[in-house]
Design a protein around this nucleic acid. Structure first.
Lengths: 234, 234
DNA sequence: TAGTGGTCTAGACCACCTG
DNA sequence: AGGTGGTCTAGACCACTAG
C-alpha cells in the first residue's frame, strides 16, 4: 500500500487535499505527524514538511509544535489582490493609457493623515482610451522621499514614479464604496453621489510614512481575482 | 567579510531586502546565483533558496532557471484579503451576530449565472448588534451539494454551513461599488441608490460549480488589510 | 548545451508547547 | 519531559531555458 511512493511535494499536497476533501480527515481532525507520513509516502520528511507548510499557508491546515497538524475548522479563504501600477493595469486591458496632472503643491495634510509637517500634494487623473479611469489624490512625505520635490509629475505619474523610486517596508490598504463628491463626479463623468469604488493606501518605510493615496475609480470599476493561489487548490 | 555567516533564511531574506532597499541591487539587477550567495553567507544553498523563493513569492524578485534571479522592475504589491465566515467577522469586531432567513426556494438561476438547471436559491440578512450588516443572495448547485436540500437555513446560514460542508478547489471573487436596489436599500436601512460595497464570489469543485453568492454590505463597510505579509517586508 | 533554479534525501539539532 | 514541527546541511539529480 505504501510501496508505490508519492515523492513530489505537490503530489503529497494533492493527496492530503484529497483526504480532506473526501472527509477521510474531517475538519478538526489531527493528521499523522510528518515522520509517519514520510514513511507512508516513501519520501523524506522535508518533502512532507514542504507540502504541509504550503497547505498551512493557504489556511487549510493549522500546525503547532507538539500539538501536531489539524485540519482547519473554518478554512479561511484568502484572495490575493495585486496592486499594479495604474498604467500597467490599463494597458493590460488593451486600452490606451492617458495621464493628466491636476494640481501639485506643498501643503499641510488634513489632520486625519496625522501630519503637521508640510507634504507634497499631487492630484491627477488617469484615463483609459480617453475616458476617465481613476482619480488619484496623493500626499508624499518629502522627508522620506526628498527626490519627489524635483519631480514635476506632469508626464510621469506619482503612482509610477514612486514604485521604482521609493521602496517601502509595509503598508495598509482599504477598499470601500463611497458616493462621489463634487470634484470626483466632475472628473470621472459621474453623477453627483454616484457610487464609486475607492482604494486608500498608506505605505511606510520603517517608522516613516512614505505616501498616502486615495484612488477613486470611475463607476463600473471592479476588482477581480482568483481564490486558490496557483497549485494550492482547496 | 564572509566569515561571519548568515545562517537563517529569515536573516538572508532581511539582508537581501536591505541590499535592494539600499539600491546596492537596483530594480532590474541580476543578483548572484544561489551557489555564490551560499558561499558568501556561509550557509547551504537550500537555505538561500528558501529565502529567495519567499521573496519571489512576495513579488520582489523574479526568478527563472538559467536566466537567474533579478530584482523586480515593478514590485507588484500584493494584498491578501481574508474571506472569513460572516458570523466570525462580526463577532471578531465584538458585536452580537444575528441572522434572518428571507427566502429559500428552488428556482432557475438567471442566465448570467449560466445555469439552466434548477438550483437552491437562498436569501438572508446578517446583522451586527441588531443593525443590518450584509445581505446574502446565494445560489447553491444541488447536484454538487445535494445535502443542501435537507438544510432549512433558518438558523445556520448557508454561508456558514457550506464552509464546513462543501469543499471547493478554486473560485473567483470580485469587489465593486454599486447603487443599492430597492430590495437592498430596504433591508440595509439605506437610501435608494446609496453606494454599497458588493462582493460576488463563485466557487468550483473541479469542473462543477458549488455556489455563487452576492454579498451586499450596508453603507460604511470597508475591507481593510495589510501589505507586506508577516516577515516579508519589502 | 551549459548554467541556473527546483527539488529531493538522510540526517541532525533546535524551539516550542502540551500534558 | 517528551513529542512535534521548524530549520539547516551537504550532496545529488532533474527541469527549464537563454544563448
Amino acid at each position: 500500500m505504501s510501496g508505490a511512493g508519492i515523492r513530489s511535494w505537490q503530489a503529497i499536497q494533492t493527496e492530503v487535499m484529497r483526504r480532506i476533501h473526501a472527509r477521510e480527515w474531517p475538519p478538526g481532525h489531527t493528521i499523522p505527524n510528518e515522520v509517519d507520513l514520510a514513511r507512508e509516502f516513501g519520501c523524506a520528511r522535508a518533502t512532507v514538511n514542504r507540502a504541509l507548510q504550503s497547505l498551512a499557508d493557504a489556511g487549510l491546515l493549522e500546525r503547532r509544535r507538539k500539538a501536531g497538524t489539524r485540519v482547519a475548522l473554518h478554512p479561511v479563504g484568502k484572495a490575493t489582490v495585486d496592486i499594479p501600477v495604474i498604467r500597467q493595469e490599463i494597458e493590460e486591458r488593451g486600452l490606451r493609457y492617458g495621464y493628466q496632472l491636476i494640481a501639485r503643491n506643498i501643503d499641510i495634510p488634513p489632520p486625519r493623515l496625522g501630519g503637521k509637517n508640510a507634504a507634497l500634494h499631487v492630484t491627477a487623473l488617469h484615463t483609459a482610451d480617453g475616458a476617465p479611469y481613476v482619480f488619484e489624490d496623493r500626499w508624499i512625505n518629502t522627508d522620506t522621499v526628498p527626490g519627489a520635490l524635483d519631480q514635476p509629475f506632469d508626464r510621469i505619474s506619482a503612482n509610477e514614479w514612486l514604485v521604482t523610486t521609493a521602496p517601502y517596508t509595509h503598508g495598509d490598504i482599504g477598499f470601500s464604496a463611497q458616493p462621489a463628491n463634487a470634484t470626483q463626479s466632475a472628473l470621472l463623468d459621474a453623477r453627483a453621489n454616484a457610487p464609486v469604488f475607492v482604494i486608500d493606501r498608506t505605505t511606510w518605510d520603517g517608522e516613516d510614512t512614505v505616501t498616502t493615496v486615495t484612488l477613486t475609480y470611475a463607476p463600473g470599476y471592479r476588482i477581480h481575482t482568483i481564490i486558490g493561489t496557483g497549485p494550492v487548490a482547496f
